[in-house]
Design a protein around this nucleic acid. Structure first.
Lengths: 300, 300
DNA sequence: CAAATGTTTTTTCCCGATAAAAGACATTAT
DNA sequence: ATAATGTCTTTTATCGGGAAAAAACATTTG
């Protein structure tokens, strides 16, 4: 079947949400930029909307006829990229136990298990390899290095190096840089979240990522910025399987972020360094305590 | 034709070189480890050696009948991996001018030009993307970011951070660590090369890489160790196209390495830091001066 | 009976093909 | 004449297939 039309389905679903807001849709190119897809896909979407009686479409006029019903939407699982599907499957196996360091990874088996072609699995593994959790044996299998304490320590070591440097660069940015407005907005969101932490603690993850990415961007170094992908991936999956004391953890983190933001705004490098280190240290500890210490076998 | 037999051809060529050294070859598994290939490939090699009258092969006995002649060898170009072929082609285009930042990369066109399938090109680009020189637009083309001054600065910034830390870790290693013997050996090689620099200056590259990799390994951090791949790749290709003052450059670098090695052996962290910084600074300058400053256009 | 050889099975690597999606060109409407 | 729509072309994403290489299993040999 060569290629799934998840791009279309996902854009279609997002397009449905626009329908509630207006009586007529904008031009095709405009819809394209709005949904982040090409005009070809936009036209496919419009065609279906017309077919299902959601809109009347005649050249430039695209009149909304009715609001979308729940079953107008494509099921969520059909809107995922193959890469996302493979990643999820792979991470589940990796984190949901039974994934010992040194274990071999079999492309064919993975592909069969997930129900996709080998090419997609291969491409996924190549992309994934930069996270430092797997390694390729030439002309042969991949080897799992394992989500071990050592991995967490190596990861956080780099993270700390990079973030301390980025934070210093951030604080040194001129007053008229737009990042200060971004920071103000993030601060507000932090305060809001802090006040409703008991119910919204699970929204912290996303805020956390945006905050740290903003800081890393101040480094103006693509390697530093890109490295945050590794951290984000690890945190994303790791905390999906480890919900212990999530609320408390996030409550502490929000407070640390606010102190960190205050330090940045003071532009006092000493304060920035201290606040940054303090937060990173506690982030490292949370990560470390959640890794069960199964023997640190090193396989070479 | 699906897959070339370059693994076999390369191993065969290396196998031929063994022939001059003994009268009879070892067991199949032993040959396998020696050549770094599976027994299947070993047997294919032996079969051909028998066919061309190089050996008499009967079960355990593999008697050498004659020394290999030049035309027993497979041509060099047939022993390259597809990945190597693609990489070379790609880097030639990238560095041999005409590769402006912001330019689109077309998988299909690249594949046709090099004469390989699209899958291999895609896989190469994914692997290559970690070097920070290209970036993917989802569901669309890759964008070339260009080998610019900014790139060189970002690269060296990280390099310096990592190497200064690794050097400190190295100096702190216990006296009985095997790295000290490795360092002694490298020092000897440096002295030898220094004394014959006028004729052997082009051998420095390889020594340089081994030296820096030894130091980086002391960090015991996979991200630091892996990052050296980026540096090695850049230096490898960059200096292939830029031979200006190669001898002088390398002569200076050898001297700096020797000072750096002496500092490491002194285990005086202050000295190590100074020697390391000095060398890295001059390495950065050599790289920077060799990048022609064509407008730093930023495309976003 | 351990290690080598002989044989069979499985996996990796790579290509060509095809539908989805993007992009380019031609035409029409404001 | 600019911006939209309509149509056609190219490129990307993904699969299945097949040869090379690895790995597993069976048999022989010292």
């Amino acid at each position: 079947m060569s290629k799934s039309n998840n791009v279309y389905k996902d854009a279609y679903n997002r397009g449905l949400r626009l329908l509630g807001e207006t009586q007529s849709l904008p031009s095709e190119p405009e819809l394209g930029t709005l949904l982040g897809v090409s005009r070809t896909t936009v036209r496919t979407i419009l065609a279906r909307m017309e077919e299902t009686g959601l809109i009347a479409w005649n050249k430039r006029s695209k009149t909304v006829l009715r609001a979308p019903k729940p079953d107008d939407f494509f099921p969520e699982e059909e809107t995922d990229t193959l890469a996302q599907i493979i990643e999820r499957s792979f991470m589940r196996r990796l984190l949901a136990g039974g994934a010992e360091a040194g274990m071999q990874i079999n492309e064919l088996e993975l592909a069969r298990e997930i129900g996709v072609g080998t090419t997609s699995v291969r491409e996924f593994l190549i992309r994934f390899s930069r996270f430092g959790l797997i390694e390729k044996r030439r002309n042969s299998h991949w080897v799992l290095k394992g989500f071990t304490r050592a991995f967490a320590l190596e990861l956080t070591e780099i993270r700390e190096m990079f973030e301390i440097r980025s934070a210093a660069a951030f604080a040194a940015l001129p007053q008229d840089s737009p990042v200060w407005a971004d920071l103000d907005r993030l601060e507000d969101e932090h305060r809001l979240l802090a006040s409703e932490i008991t119910t919204r603690f699970n929204e912290f993850s996303e805020l956390d990522e945006r905050f740290h990415r903003l800081i890393h961007r101040a480094s103006h170094n693509r390697f530093i910025v890109d490295f945050y992908d590794v951290i984000a991936m690890i945190f994303h999956y790791h905390y999906q399987w480890n919900k212990a004391q999530e609320r408390e953890r996030n409550e502490v983190a929000v407070a640390e972020h606010l102190a960190y933001i205050a330090a940045l705004k003071s532009r006092d490098l000493g304060k920035v360094d201290a606040a940054c280190r303090k937060h990173l240290k506690s982030a490292r500890n949370t990560l470390l305590t959640s890794i069960p210490e199964t023997g640190n076998r090193i396989i070479s």
